[in-house]
Amino acid sequence: MLVLAVDTSTPTVTTGVGEVTPDRAVVLRAERRVDTPRGHAEILTTLILECLTEAGVARSDLDAVVVGAGPGPFTGLRVGMATAAAFADALAIPLQGVCSLDAIRSDAGAGRVLVVTDARRREVYWALYGPDGRMAGPAVDTPADLIGRLRGETVDLIVGSTSHTALFGEPTDDSISAPTTTGLVAAARDALESGAAPEPVVPLYLRRPDAVELKDRKR
């Protein structure tokens, strides 16, 4: 199964082609990851086409599209999800959304893992995972409030935004800071292999967008 993966939930624009093999392994065929707080819309399609060329995969060879549904900022998520939906619709293949924090956790190995990403406004998006999957979240909190929420919880590793992971006083792995192609595909693997029709992909904004119409601002 050949899968196009897209995520724009963090400052790192991620796209690539992954292959789910018969033994359920996820093999990376090509990937582009570019750190850019802005400009997602300008580069995403170009990066996708570069990955397809490098992987030697025609668009018609793709079996599905996986997209990170956040949590993340309104504008960034909209770019990735609209682009992924356009590819899936044009190719008449399934579009599977996954929580972007789940994708980051997929690269973190075993144990109890806390994933945090930058939510701006001095807050973080977060989710806590155990051996059997997500235990809490996704949610948005200040680091101080999150520390209070996690008091008494065992955390083996914290991954995600490198400007925030060190705030919690637990072991970190700075190499795992944003979703990867393999993480996105692994997070969607069970749903893709089930053959069931995907649920509608809904963005995880978790709060209102920063930009609002004037009438709403006055209200």
Score class of each variant (00 low, 15 high):
residue 183 G to Q: 09
residue 73 P to R: 15
residue 48 I to M: 10
residue 56 G to F: 07
residue 57 V to D: 09
residue 4 L to G: 02
residue 122 R to E: 07
residue 35 D to S: 14
residue 167 L to N: 05
residue 208 R to G: 10
residue 130 G to V: 02
residue 172 T to W: 00
residue 9 S to M: 12
residue 52 L to N: 10
residue 212 V to D: 06
residue 36 T to D: 08
residue 154 T to Y: 04
residue 211 A to H: 05
residue 89 D to H: 14
residue 188 A to Y: 04
residue 64 A to F: 03
residue 188 A to M: 04
residue 217 R to C: 11
residue 8 T to N: 15
residue 217 R to K: 12
residue 213 E to G: 14
residue 192 L to Q: 13
residue 160 G to N: 01
residue 167 L to F: 04
residue 191 A to R: 15
residue 4 L to A: 01
residue 170 E to P: 00
residue 65 V to C: 08
residue 117 T to Y: 00
residue 127 A to I: 07
residue 163 S to Q: 09
residue 140 V to P: 00
residue 157 L to R: 09
residue 139 A to F: 05
residue 168 F to G: 10
residue 127 A to V: 11
residue 31 E to G: 11
residue 3 V to H: 12
residue 44 L to D: 11
residue 216 D to V: 07
residue 22 P to W: 08
residue 33 R to E: 04
residue 137 G to I: 02
residue 176 I to E: 00
residue 101 L to M: 05
residue 213 E to K: 15
residue 91 L to F: 09
residue 78 R to S: 00
residue 179 P to Q: 04
residue 133 G to L: 10
residue 41 A to E: 10
residue 77 L to H: 04
residue 33 R to L: 06
residue 36 T to S: 13
residue 3 V to F: 07
residue 162 T to R: 15
residue 11 P to N: 03
residue 74 F to S: 09
residue 108 A to K: 06
residue 176 I to A: 09
residue 177 S to V: 03
residue 19 E to P: 02
residue 158 I to R: 14
residue 82 A to F: 04
residue 45 T to L: 13
residue 95 L to W: 06
residue 111 G to Q: 04
residue 15 T to I: 01
residue 39 G to L: 12
residue 71 P to F: 05
residue 166 A to N: 15
residue 172 T to H: 00
residue 155 V to G: 01
residue 176 I to H: 00
residue 164 H to C: 09
residue 16 G to M: 09
residue 17 V to A: 02
residue 9 S to Y: 09
residue 79 V to C: 06
residue 112 R to S: 12
residue 39 G to S: 12
residue 167 L to W: 06
residue 23 D to R: 15
residue 150 L to P: 10
residue 206 L to Q: 04
residue 114 L to K: 14
residue 159 V to T: 05
residue 5 A to W: 03
residue 76 G to N: 14
residue 51 C to L: 04
residue 92 A to R: 13
residue 200 P to L: 01
residue 187 A to L: 00
residue 190 D to V: 02
residue 42 E to F: 07
residue 84 A to E: 03
residue 216 D to H: 07
residue 1 M to D: 08
residue 116 V to N: 03
residue 85 A to E: 08
residue 107 D to I: 01
residue 138 P to V: 11
residue 30 A to I: 04
residue 166 A to T: 09
residue 198 P to G: 10
residue 14 T to Q: 15
residue 14 T to I: 12
residue 101 L to E: 01
residue 146 L to K: 05
residue 149 R to T: 07
residue 104 I to K: 03
residue 134 R to K: 09
residue 147 I to N: 15
residue 156 D to A: 06
residue 179 P to T: 01
residue 181 T to C: 08
residue 55 A to K: 11
residue 135 M to C: 07
residue 44 L to R: 10
residue 188 A to C: 07
residue 10 T to P: 10
residue 36 T to P: 03
